[in-house]
Computed example of a mutant assay.
Amino acid sequence: MSGSGAPIKIGVSSCLLGEKVRYDGGHKHDPYLTGVLGRFFSFVPVCPEVECGMTTPREAMRLEGDPAQPRLMTHRTRIDKTEQMLAFCRAKVEQLAAEDLCGFIFKKGSPSSGLFRVKVYREGMPAASGSGLFAASVARRFPQLPMEEEGRLNDPVLRENFIERVFAFRRWKDFLAEGPDLGRLVQFHTCQKLLIMSHSTQLYRELGALVATGKEIAFPELLERYQELYMKALELHATAKKQTNVLMHIMGYFKKHLSVEEKQELLQLIKQYHDGLVPLVVPLTMLRHYVAKYRQEYLSQQVYLSPHPAELMLRNHV
């Protein structure tokens, strides 16, 4: 759910939800999407082939030619379906603009919906360097929208990064919907500081400088620039080294409160996390305990301590 109570919408390739729309009449149902993410997200299904007028089942297709501007060709009868698909893409992305999406999960390898390393055939070996025509259209139309492929969500690091960005984008959209001003932007940024720091100290500094000079910039431009840098920062992976830096930073707020033994215990947990022996949730649980115990107001506002529902267990991997 978003801050407004509305469901968080993400686009999804229809076949991943179990819809029988693939060229062979089958589906590619992903139980993680429907069984786990479905508890927190509302899905907006899209099947470019069916929605642009193709039948199910249908002849298999593939991308051919220049990976930067590939053609969509039927494999056996050699019919060029490029313009049919691109016309659909132009109309569909404008429809999706009204859906208030906070993310999109695409079908790996699809000539329409594959996001990364889609095969593009030309003379010799196919180059696994293209994007599906629809996925590329969505990426161009919504450059800050969190996007991922279902196969890559099996990687716990990629999964955490994607879902964290979805919730972050929803927070930003809620902020925009509530009538922002410079004071509220400062407040929003203050709550995101440690989360941003865990992804990029450089962009953390850039965003801080941007907000600090906000009065010198036209406010619509300021918001646009902040969104761009905010989502760019979160796209970078929060490595164990970066996370350890943030954990130590948080620990510094309790140097006058903790006993020598408590400090040693906390430092040991942070080191064990850094060395890959325990998941991030272990030192964070203790830090959250101290935040509540000592009523640390600044830290209690930090999104970093709980950027997504605990039920997703995204910080439980080593």
Rank of each mutant, 00 (worst) to 15 (best):
L222R: 11
D66V: 09
R140E: 03
S300I: 02
V260S: 15
F41P: 01
A135W: 04
M251F: 06
A292Q: 14
P111I: 01
L145I: 09
N161E: 15
R58G: 04
R171L: 12
L267K: 08
R71E: 11
E235R: 02
L207F: 06
K256F: 00
P180L: 10
K173A: 13
L258I: 00
Y23N: 09
P180A: 15
R141T: 07
V118L: 09
F254H: 01
M125K: 14
L33M: 13
D30A: 15
H27P: 02
T77D: 15
R165N: 09
M61H: 01
A209T: 13
Y298M: 05
Y298T: 04
K92P: 00
R184A: 13
G3W: 02
M313S: 09
L267A: 09
Q202K: 13
D275I: 04
Y32K: 10
E160I: 02
T77E: 12
E49R: 08
E224R: 14
K107A: 02
E221S: 13
M54P: 01
G208H: 08
G114K: 04
R165L: 03
E123D: 14
E164V: 12
R62F: 01
Q144C: 06
E94I: 03
S300Q: 15
A238I: 03
E297N: 04
P283D: 04
K119G: 11
P126W: 05
L305R: 00
V260W: 12
R22G: 05
M251N: 01
Q272E: 14
H308I: 05
Y304G: 00
E297P: 02
L153D: 08
I10H: 07
V246Y: 03
E149P: 10
E49N: 13
V318T: 10
Y204D: 03
A168D: 03
R90V: 11
L210M: 04
Q302H: 12
M125D: 11
N316H: 15
K92H: 00
L115W: 12
E261I: 06
E83Q: 10
Q84F: 13
A233R: 00
V281L: 03
Q296N: 14
I163V: 07
C47H: 07
E64C: 15
A127W: 10
G103R: 07
D155E: 15
E64Y: 04
Q192A: 14
V21P: 00
G183K: 14
G132F: 02
